[in-house]
Computed example of a mutant assay.
Amino acid sequence: MKIHEYQGKEVIARFGAAVPLGYTAKSAEEAALQAARIPGDIKVGGGVKVCKTPDELKQHAARILANPLITPQTSAEGQRVKTLLIEQGTVIKKELYFSVLVDRESKKPMILASAEGGMDIEEVSEKHPDKIIQETVDPLLGLRNFQALRIAYRMGLDAIDPKLPAKAAKCFMSLYRAFSENDCALLEINPMIINGDNEVVCLDCKMSFDENALYRHPDIEKYRDLDEENAVETEAAKWNLNFIKLDGNIGCMVNGAGLAMATMDIIKYYGGEPANFLDVGGGATAERVEAAFKIITEDPNVKAIFINIFGGIVRCDMIAEGIIEAFKKVNLRVPVVVRLQGNNADKAKTIINGSELKDKLVMIDDITEAAKKSVAFVKG
């Protein structure tokens, strides 16, 4: 789960990290009122726009709220802006990069940092790989002070001010605690700055969280903005379905993440394009399968559906019942290929063959042939 920048700053501020003074607004008029609460002439609004007068701020606010925001992180259509963050202007002496993420190789938290802040870390990594600082953290011990100081010295902060490494280390440790104690998947500050008073300030904040741990953090879950999430993926989550929308035209319904990945791979191998990743899980019920079917068929790009179920914990006959119920409620106009193997597979085939669906879908036992047939339906 991702949250907004202003929400992320609220979180890290609670752990002691310094952030600019700022307020949120939902209209140009409110933005002007909030800006009046902030000392100084220079204000920074969401977008990011630097404003020197109230009129300039109001004009920028109205423009941003009226038009979709298009950035490298959004789609071509952009993203509608509903909330603005108005912040105090800050003198920037030096920009830094700091992030905490989970390193899959070491299976531990890892800090990525650089003295080259304000740029995409991918760009820094490509052009200046020697300027990327990596520090693996023992999750049982947390980030130690000597590690935080080592990062600060490697950034060269002592050359700016001998007191800066200690200040930066304190900020790093606050950010790590915010990451660890909230079960984050990512915490990124870009840029982190050294201001005119040689203080360390988090000028930006990006945070995402492990959704499997949100039950432990109701305060974080309250930040969830469903308008910022894919509506179909949100609906799938209500049914405990693991669903990701893709750009292809062959809908996939599979049980188990590994089998789902293999199914998508074999579809692509034979020249097709999967329209989604959809794992109904090991504890699938007929109701969950019916919901999965509806979610797939709501995608207008889907021209064929490949149902690939290996019965282990989940019973194939239960899947068959879900398919039948879904067919009764969905006006399906695309071909469906079904492969059912494993627990109660024969019983499932008997159920389907004894229903009115026997002429509406294709039953194939071999995964290769089933994938080929799915692709042929789309290309045919």
Rank of each mutant, 00 (worst) to 15 (best):
Gly118Lys: 00
Arg150Gly: 13
Asp317Ala: 11
Gly281Tyr: 03
Arg14Gln: 10
Tyr215His: 15
Gly45Thr: 11
Leu340Asp: 04
Asn242Gly: 13
Lys26His: 04
Ser125Cys: 06
Val91Ile: 15
Asp227Pro: 01
Phe310Gly: 09
Ile352Ser: 00
His60Val: 04
Met110Asn: 04
Glu30Ile: 04
Leu361Asn: 08
Glu273His: 05
Cys51Ile: 06
Lys268Met: 05
Leu69Ser: 11
Ile160Cys: 11
Ala370Thr: 07
Val254Arg: 03
Asp41Arg: 04
Thr74Cys: 05
Asn145Gly: 14
Cys316Val: 08
Ala345Lys: 00
Leu149Arg: 10
Phe146Trp: 07
Ala18Phe: 11
Val44Met: 13
Ala320Asn: 00
Lys127Ala: 02
His128Ile: 09
Lys43Cys: 01
Met318Trp: 12
Gly248Ile: 08
Ile92Arg: 00
Glu298Leu: 10
Ile296Met: 05
Asp219Met: 02
Cys51Asn: 02
Gly89Glu: 05
Glu30Cys: 08
Leu186Gln: 15
Ile160Trp: 10
Lys328Ala: 13
Leu361Met: 09
Glu298Cys: 10
Ala152Tyr: 00
Gln134Asp: 12
Asn343Thr: 15
Ala376Met: 08
Asp219Arg: 01
Pro165Glu: 10
Phe327Trp: 00
Ala31Leu: 07
Gly16Phe: 13
Ala275Ile: 08
Ile132Ser: 10
Asp366Thr: 04
Ala62Leu: 01
Ile244Phe: 05
Thr350Cys: 04
Asn198Tyr: 02
Ala66His: 07
Leu140Thr: 09
Ile193Asp: 07
Ala370Met: 11
Val200Ser: 05
Gln341Ala: 07
Pro39Met: 02
Met110Ser: 02
Ile151Phe: 06
Gln79Ala: 01
Ser106Arg: 09
Glu123Leu: 14
Arg177Ser: 11
Phe306Glu: 01
Gly342Gln: 01
Ala76Gln: 13
Ser106His: 05
Thr74Val: 10
Ile160Phe: 10
Val289Gly: 10
Lys360Leu: 05
Phe377Arg: 03
Asp227Cys: 06
Leu141Val: 06
Val44Pro: 05
Ala28Lys: 04
Pro129Ile: 10
Glu325Arg: 15
Phe327Gly: 08
Lys58Glu: 06
Lys358Pro: 14
Asn198Asp: 00
Val44Trp: 05
Asp346His: 14
Ala185Asp: 15
Ile351Ala: 11
Gly22Tyr: 02
Ile367Val: 04
Lys379Val: 02
Asn240Arg: 07
Val19Ile: 12
Leu33Ile: 14
His217Asn: 01
Ser355Tyr: 02
Ala36His: 04
Lys108Thr: 15
Asp265Glu: 09
Lys82Ile: 14
Leu140Gly: 01
Leu186Lys: 15
Val254Met: 04
Val50His: 14
Thr350Glu: 14
Asp204Thr: 13
Leu57Phe: 03
Lys373Thr: 03
Asn331Cys: 09
Lys94Met: 15
Asn255Cys: 10
Ile266Trp: 07
Met192Cys: 12
Ala25Leu: 08
Pro335Val: 01
Gly248Ala: 03
Gly283Met: 05
Glu29Met: 09
Leu84His: 12
Gly47His: 06
Gly271Asn: 00
Gly46Ser: 13
Val124Cys: 12
Phe277Val: 04
Arg104Phe: 13
Asp204Ile: 02
Val330Ala: 12
Ser27Ile: 03
Gly312Gln: 02
Lys206Ile: 09
Ser125His: 03
Ala178Asp: 04
Val102Arg: 11
Leu141Met: 15
Thr350Asp: 06
Ile309Ser: 13
Thr71Lys: 13
Lys347Val: 10
Lys329Pro: 05
